[in-house]
Amino acid sequence: MSAVEPRSELLRVTDLHAFYGQSHILHGIDLNVGTREVVTLLGRNGSGRSTTLKAILGLVPRRTGSVMVNGRETIGMQSHRITRLGIGYCPEERGIFASLSAEENLTLPPRVGSGGMSLQEIYEMFPNLLERRRSQGTRLSGGEQQMLAMARILRVGARLLLLDEITEGLAPVIVQTLGRVVRGLGERGLTMILIEQNFRFVSQLADRHYLIEHGRIVDMITRDEIGKRTDSLHRFLGV
C-alpha cells in the first residue's frame, strides 16, 4: 500500500466518534501513525479535522471508539493523563494565555517525556521570543504568538505532536521559518500529525495524507502518489 518502511506504531485510532451535545461530529475515524512518521489531515473547513485532534486528546465532551497511544488504550482517560503519555498539542486558536507573560506561557506546560529542548535552544530557534519574553502573551504579534505556541510544546519532550493549522494567516517568511522548524523536528525523530490548508507547505513535509470528509476518513495518499493525484486532490480540497 505504501512505500513507507514498516515502523513501530505510535498512534492507532479505531472507529472514533465524537459528540458535542446533540451533534455527532466524527463518524468513525480510523487512522494510524507510526513512530517518526509525519501525517496530515486534509479536508475542507468543518470536515472534522480539528475535532479529530481534540478527540484524540479527550478534549471533546463525549467520544467513543478506541485511541491507542503507544499501545495504551486512552478512551477512558482524562486529557491530562493522555497528554502525559507524550503528546504535545498546538491548538488552532493558538491558545496563548493573556494573563501570562510570553516566558510564562513558554514554561507553563509540564514535561511529558525526556529529550525536550532547553529554554536556551528554543530562544536560539526563535530569537523574537527572547526579545519579547516579558511581554504579555496576547501583546505579541500573530506570528510571534504562533511561534510561542509551537515553542511551548518543544520544551516538554513530547514524542507525538498534534499541530492544528500552524501556518494559518501568517506571512510567507514566517511560514518558511515554521517549515524549517517542522522539518527539523522530523529529523529529531518526532512524530507529527498536521492539519493544513496550505497544501504546498505540507506536501514535501509529510509521509502520508489522510483525507477527511463529514467526520470520516475517505482516502489515504502517500507522498509518492501525490504527483499522480494532484487533480483529484485539488478537487477534494476545493482549491
Binding site: 491530562h80 497528554t83 494573563s99
Partner: peptide
C-alpha cells in the same frame, strides 16, 4: 501561573498535562 492559566482556559491547561 497555573492558577491564572486555569482561570482563563482550564481545558487547554489540562490538555497540556496539568491535573
Amino acid at each position: 501561573s497555573y492558577l491564572r492559566a486555569g482561570t482563563e482556559n482550564p481545558a487547554l491547561l489540562q490538555a497540556f498535562g496539568v491535573n
